[in-house]
Amino acid sequence: MPVSDEDHTEDASRRKTEQPRCGTLIHPEPKIDQNARDRIGRDLRATYEALLLEPLPDRIVGLVSRLPREPRRALQ
């Protein structure tokens, strides 16, 4: 069956403007290798643990201990 010029143009236009389906990554993000990822994870946790071990200031610990039983009424 012969294809008309109009059909041809429309088809070409569709090909040009065709977009990837929703959720399809055009260029997938590069990822670091597993060893580097593991090392960063270990170092991050070690750093975060150092922050966790920092002593809490008394004013914050005391604040939680002194929180009233009826929060809304007392803190308003």
Binding site: L51, L52, L56, V61, V64, P68
Partner: peptide, 24 residues
């Protein structure tokens, strides 16, 4: 409601909260 258990849970969360706040 504000139960003693919630208070304890908040106390337990303080180090993590502070570490997150420090990192921000």
């Amino acid at each position: 409601t504000a139960t003693p258990e919630v208070r304890e849970a908040m106390l337990a969360a303080l180090p993590s909260l502070r570490a997150f706040a420090l990192s921000l």
